[in-house]
Design a protein around this nucleic acid. Structure first.
Lengths: 125, 125
DNA sequence: CTGCTATTGATATATTGTTATCATTAATAA
DNA sequence: TTATTAATGATAACAATATATCAATAGCAG
């Protein structure tokens, strides 16, 4: 049967508390605070389980390894800071009527990724 | 000095004629029509040069190797067919005023990727 | 043409992110 | 508390691109 481990709890806590998608390394680093022995193998294994269970979702950005965030968040897209590389959730939607595709094309879903400076990294005047 | 080779011409011709971003394998296959001996190494090398020169741009999709298309096309985003995996250019823009980010965040650019069925793959009724 | 050498083709190697292996540890039932 | 065995930690192996190597080929100047 499945067991409740400190590692699994720590990983879920970290993702849940983050409020933004985290990389596996960020999860490892933050998880080590609660469980110093935490291994990257356990991070990957647990993420795989959590994604299979549907309570965590992978966030995919071009040319980058997946990040992870809690599922059942509202519809949203993502903003990546070009300076600190953190990814933030933007809780907003594009209206389908603003998307124009050729005749006979059917849109099933979309991914919108914004790039720029987050409030911590924007140059102060 | 730089030399003009049949391989380089073939690769540029293929990208230029495609009208959509091509994968390295697509470029290799199409390039072999003009130069049967064409090697994948030459495709990668030439693409690197063409991108450095600025006449070709890499098109990045999450979880996939780069595709390539001619630079100096109008502003556009991309549509990937979930069935045939081809990527198409959509010559359109999202208006900045339709994008909402937190206070003090600055948008430098965005990537919009649509997923769905292209006209060749949409189920005929 | 001829010679020089940039470019090519074939393939080995590097890179990066993820998964598999396996001895050890620790969660749960009894 | 003890036995059972799922889960862990450390690291090797893997997968998928992309780059480096190097002998052979082929542009181009003369």
């Amino acid at each position: 049967m499945e067991r409740n481990t400190r590692q699994r709890d720590a990983i879920l806590d970290v993702i849940s508390a983050a409020g933004r998608p985290l990389s596996t390394q960020e999860i490892l680093t933050a998880g080590k605070v609660a469980v110093p022995s935490l291994s990257i193998a356990t991070v990957y294994r647990t993420l795989k389980d959590l994604v299979a269970e549907g309570c965590v979702l992978p966030v995919k950005l071009p040319g980058e390894p997946d990040r992870y965030e809690m599922a059942k968040l509202d519809d949203h897209y993502h903003f990546k800071c070009s300076t600190c590389s953190k990814v933030f959730d933007i809780h907003d939607r594009i209206k389908k009527k603003n998307l124009h595709v050729p005749r006979n094309f059917i849109i099933e879903k979309y991914d919108l990724i914004l790039y720029g400076q987050c409030s911590d990294c924007v140059p102060k005047h």
